[in-house]
Design a protein around this nucleic acid. Sequence first.
DNA 1: TATTGTTATACTCTATAACTATA
DNA 2: TATAGTTATAGAGTATAACAATA
Lengths: 147, 147
Amino acid sequence: MATTRTDPLTLEVVELIGAVVARYYEEYEQAAAAHSLTGAQARVLGLLSLDPLPMRRIAQKLKCEPSNVTGIVDRLEARGLVERRPDPADRRVKLAAPTEKGASTARELRASLDFAREPLAGLSDTDRAVLRDLLRRMLGMDPAGLS
Amino acid sequence: MATTRTDPLTLEVVELIGAVVARYYEEYEQAAAAHSLTGAQARVLGLLSLDPLPMRRIAQKLKCEPSNVTGIVDRLEARGLVERRPDPADRRVKLAAPTEKGASTARELRASLDFAREPLAGLSDTDRAVLRDLLRRMLGMDPAGLS
DNA sequence: TATTGTTATACTCTATAACTATA
DNA sequence: TATAGTTATAGAGTATAACAATA
């Protein structure tokens, strides 16, 4: 359907997106490492800080096998950042939830997401709004964000 | 220096960039897996397809320790995609270079980078040019790309 | 002495398959 | 019988430290 474009402009944009992706990933890993966390651990902690989740749901969010989540949560639990709680509604389910220490670590981690905001500092509000609309359209979202 | 912005617009852009990063990464891994390559292997093969490189240089490009490159190149070499050549100028150096098969795999891989171009299909040329300029500025590049 | 690449080691993430306890 | 979580296993990427060959 959508014809694949190979004009220089498109190729340059693809390359720039690749550069943004590389930078984002790199700095995310650094922010995690600053708290002695791996990227995967930081992502799980960030997820749980929004909402406690069953192990299965974490795997779905991470797009990985449930068996992997066991180990990641094990390591977070060993460090006192996360705990496993029973689900009153289903005794098979374990809900992973951040401890108080885990919640504060997640907050600090989110704060050091400055790295993602800093590159935006050079853009005006108008620029940011234009960028927002373009990114939304790239992601196939409704151009008009009817909040 | 650059004041960290936390207004809703900036936060939404940060979130959108995160979504683009996640999508890009995910689809890159899929493209690599379609050729039975891991992401790291695909990245190294892509690098070498531009230019044969000493092991040390590959590590620098990947931002990892040189000892890791040994294993990645080992696995690419075992599959006949890459070969190690002596460097005439320095006998300590080994130059990793794609074989013919490796070069064609790299080309196919690059072609399946469609995933990165496809999201751009919904944008007009003007949109793309605007996006290019915004991304350049985010990356701290000279706004005017004086090629 | 310093540098290049490798080896050895240990840890984490990953998928697969088999297991348990619930449902 | 189906599902949630775990365990066991194996492969890959990662960093650290020590090593051989060469500069």
